[in-house]
Design a protein around this nucleic acid. Sequence first.
DNA 1: ACCGCCTAGTTGACAAGTCGACTAGAGGAT
DNA 2: ATCCTCTAGTCGACTTGTCAACTAGGCGGT
Lengths: 172, 172
Amino acid sequence: MVLARIILGLLAIAPMTGYDLKRHFDSTAGHFWTADKAQIYRTLAKLVADGHAAVETVAGSGAPDRQEHRITAAGQAELAAWLASEPERQTERDPFLARVFFGAGLDEDGLRSLFAGRREAVQERLARYEQLRAENAATDRGARLRLLTLDNGIAHLRTELAWLDAAEEELA
Amino acid sequence: MVLARIILGLLAIAPMTGYDLKRHFDSTAGHFWTADKAQIYRTLAKLVADGHAAVETVAGSGAPDRQEHRITAAGQAELAAWLASEPERQTERDPFLARVFFGAGLDEDGLRSLFAGRREAVQERLARYEQLRAENAATDRGARLRLLTLDNGIAHLRTELAWLDAAEEELA
DNA sequence: ACCGCCTAGTTGACAAGTCGACTAGAGGAT
DNA sequence: ATCCTCTAGTCGACTTGTCAACTAGGCGGT
């Protein structure tokens, strides 16, 4: 389960609650993984059950109590083993491209709005990533690697925009 | 369920068996969707149950009998409705980038082989896509749209290679 | 004669992910 | 006073996807 390893990785950066993790998946880690909060909490429980993480309840001042999870030595070993293992093969799944692939079933207007919607979504994402990019500096090797993945996202979003330009021109 | 719509779309191009569909997901449609054969057969059964597709057993000459599925009028309507509906938002999930994100947990050699493996996988894919691209001509609007999605894959793979160059140089 | 591969499909057990509802207190706005 | 949002977490039902095993006949090679 990749999610479990990613959570371990995040816990290795700093101890966190499920809520914190969810925010990471919605921001800093969002460009390479997404996760439902129910799934996050269940995975955290499993990590604790497996001895890869430990919980500590921290009384919240004002806010609810926090269930802080921190990675254990066993978790650290597990994370290292995963990093060194054979990468899982990626399963491409892009519903937008699927729609384009069958786009012959749409009229000109339908296609146009399909592309327009994509363009908007991509631009929005790109703006977010560039913002993030500007806010962070590559202080050490870890930060540099994390920024590299963000640069990867940015590069692909730009490629997508360029492809949209070409596609719309070809269909015009 | 996106898979059901994609299968409908493929059946709209030509009647097919589950086996044929699997081959499509492993080749022509592989750059935007993948599917397990068990899932394909179950989805086909559901499409038939919903009246979106009809089965016809064709005696195989030599080979086993073929369960040819063809799209029905109701299926065609369903497909058209999906194409015109709001696109589902994409869930980015890239285990390779996840590994890079936590790459600080790897030594120089580990990182190098991670990138090298990715480069190899990307180059292989790119070669396959370019082969496919060369084999197909844009005869009509449908074919042109299908080729556009392939071009999308090619563009992103090239971007990935360029990013790998930059990343390896930065880490060198 | 036997092995392995291709076509074609089925089944069961599981793993992973999604959705919505629900609890609960604090703080801010109307 | 009431409502909304944020933080924090839990639960159940459900959908989707994955893995491995299994059937079964035909074809080609050794």
